[in-house]
Design a protein around this nucleic acid. Structure first.
Lengths: 162, 162
DNA sequence: GCAAAGTAGTTACAAATGAAACCAATGTCA
DNA sequence: TGACATTGGTTTCATTTGTAACTACTTTGC
C-alpha cells in the first residue's frame, strides 16, 4: 500500500515496520488465547502462566515464576493469591528462608493443567500449523535475538502487560 | 532446560511454545519502545501509533485509525483527545457524514512525527539489525499468517477442538 | 553482635484499560 | 415518511495494571 502522506520528510511505513507488526501479532494471539482460556476454563492469562510454569517445573518460588515468565511480581502475587483461593496451588514454607515459599500445583491445579495444556498446544497448532519447518526455525531464531536485544534495551526496570 | 515436573501426563514446554515466546518478545519490544518515546518525547504508545498512522497516510477518520492499527476504539478516542489537547492534530468535519471527522497532523504534530519516526527506525535497527535477510523474510511470512489466523480466532471466538 | 542494606512478597493508590451504555447522525425498508 | 437498526465516536464504570511504599526476613560489613 502506498503512503498518502502530504508531507515531504521521512515516512515510516508501519506495514513494513517489524516492531509494530510483532506487537500487533502478539496482541491478537494473546487475545485469542485469553478468550479461550477464560471462556472454557474460567481462568485468566496470568493465572494460566503461573500454572504452566508449575506444570512444567514442579516447584518454584513466586520470584522464580516471575523471572522465568517475565511477569511483574505484583501480577504473580495476585495470580498466586487467586489460584490459592481456588485451591489450585499448594504452598509450602521454606524453612531456610521464611520470606519465600515453595509453590506447586495441587491435585485440582494439576487436573486443570492436564486439561488446558493440550488445548493450548492445539490452539498453537491452529495458529502456526501451516508454517513450514524452515520458516518456523527462522522465526524462532529471530524471536531469540530480538528478545535478547529488546530485553537489554528495556533493561532499566519496568515490566510486562500481556 | 529439562522439565522437573513431578507428574506423569502431558507437559507443555513453554520455552518451545511459540505463542508464549511471541508474546514475551513483543512485550519486551513494546516496553523498550514505550520507554524511549515516553522519556525522550513525552508521548504514550497509543498516541504515537495515532501519529504514525496519520504521518503515513495523511488524513484518516478515527475509525480507520482503529482498524488499521488494531486499537480499541476507546483507546483511539482518548489518544485523539490528548493529541488534540496538545495541538498535534487537526480535525476537519466531514460534511457528508457529520458523525465522523477527518484527522490529520498539525504542523506541531508533523514536527513530532518527523523527529520520532527516524528514532523508531533506529531503534528497530538495533533490535532487528543483526537478523539476516532470509530470516527476516521468513519472520515476516510467519507474522503474516499468524496475524491472520489469530485475528480470525480472536474475533469469531472460535472454540477449541476437544 | 548489630546496624545498614538488600530481598521475597503484599498492599495502597493512581493510571490505563475495555465492556457496555450512550448520543448524534445515517441507512434501511415498509 | 417514519419507525427501527446501524454506525462513528464519547463517556461511564468496574477491572486490571504498575509504581511505590511497606512488612518481614536475610545478608553484609564492621
Amino acid at each position: 500500500m502506498k503512503p498518502m502522506s502530504n508531507h515531504e520528510g521521512f515516512v515510516l511505513r508501519l506495514e513494513n515496520f517489524l516492531p509494530y507488526r510483532l506487537v500487533v501479532a502478539a496482541s491478537l494471539v494473546s487475545q485469542a488465547t485469553a478468550r479461550t482460556y477464560a471462556t472454557k476454563y474460567g481462568i485468566g492469562i496470568a493465572e494460566w502462566r503461573v500454572i504452566a510454569q508449575l506444570g512444567e517445573f514442579g516447584t518454584m518460588t513466586a520470584k522464580q515464576i516471575g523471572t522465568r515468565s517475565h511477569m511483574h511480581k505484583t501480577k504473580v502475587s495476585r495470580a498466586v493469591a487467586t489460584l490459592t483461593r481456588k485451591k489450585m496451588l499448594a504452598k509450602r514454607a521454606n524453612r531456610d528462608d521464611k520470606r519465600e515459599a515453595f509453590l506447586s500445583l495441587s491435585p485440582i491445579g494439576l487436573e486443570i493443567y492436564e486439561s488446558i495444556a493440550p488445548a493450548a498446544q492445539a490452539l498453537s497448532q491452529r495458529m502456526f500449523g501451516e508454517v513450514s519447518a524452515e520458516d518456523r526455525a527462522a522465526f524462532e531464531r529471530v524471536l531469540d535475538t530480538v528478545t535478547a536485544r529488546a530485553a537489554a534495551l528495556a533493561d532499566t526496570g519496568a515490566e510486562l502487560p500481556d
